[in-house]
Amino acid sequence: MEVEFDELVKQVTGHSFWLSYLSAATKPISQLGIHVAIFSEPFLSLVLSGEKRVESRFSRTRCAPYGEVGAGDVILIKETAGPICGLSLVRRAWYYDLISEPIERIRNQYGPAIHADDAFWSSRADAHYATLIELDETVTIHPVQCDKRDRRGWVSLRSRQLTFDFV
């Protein structure tokens, strides 16, 4: 999977925070983590509108984003089976082993910020791990194509997966 990084920079030219932040990320010493997160409705609209301030990912195994996302990282917001349509900054991330931390405690503490209903929480009852991510500076952008073809809901990109065109 590759993402045209320069295309992302073009799409944020009207957003001074993102233009500065992403431009700094092209410097060789940048340690910026970049992640592609796939969203379906209604969560996509809630994140893009800024109503949903905490993203949650639950799994039975230790997989991305568990242990891979951190403060200052960039999340590329991708619509299910669609393009990248937004960006968000990771303000903070929390990791939970649900064997020792009851999911009900997470629901009580973060439920309103996650914006999930009873069916959502019931469907995660068999999860063993949880990653919670506080989102900030979320912005909608013009669609940027991404050639992701697998079923993963989260991908942490490595530098070889970003295409830079320095013109």
Rank of each mutant, 00 (worst) to 15 (best):
P65L: 07
L48G: 08
L46E: 03
E101N: 11
R92N: 07
A37K: 06
T80E: 10
A71S: 15
E104W: 03
N108I: 11
R57P: 03
P42A: 05
D97T: 08
L89P: 00
G70Q: 09
L89H: 01
I77G: 06
V36F: 07
S100I: 07
I103S: 08
S40K: 15
F120W: 14
E55I: 03
D118N: 10
S123Q: 14
I75N: 00
E51R: 15
L44E: 14
I84S: 04
T61H: 03
V54F: 07
S122M: 11
W121L: 08
G50I: 09
I106C: 08
V36Q: 04
T80K: 14
F43N: 10
G82P: 07
R124P: 09
G82Q: 03
E101K: 13
F43C: 00
R124Y: 03
G50V: 02
A119G: 10
S88P: 03
F58Q: 04
E101Y: 01
A64K: 08
R62T: 00
V74K: 07
F120D: 12
I77K: 09
V74C: 13
A81W: 12
T80C: 10
G70V: 01
L89I: 01
A119C: 14
V47P: 09
D118Y: 05
W94G: 06
T80F: 01
S88K: 09
L44G: 11
K78T: 08
S100V: 06
P112Q: 11
S59G: 12
Q109P: 07
E55T: 01
I106D: 05
E104Q: 11
D97Q: 10
W121F: 08
S123L: 10
L48R: 12
A113L: 09
A71G: 13
K78R: 15
G67H: 10
G67S: 10
L46I: 00
A71W: 05
G111Q: 06
R60W: 01
Q109T: 13
G72A: 02
I106V: 14
L48K: 08
A81C: 15
P42C: 00
G111W: 02
F120R: 06
G70W: 03
S56N: 03
V36W: 04
R53N: 08
I38P: 02
D97I: 12
I84A: 00
C85W: 05
R91M: 04
I75K: 01
I34N: 09
I34V: 14
G50H: 09
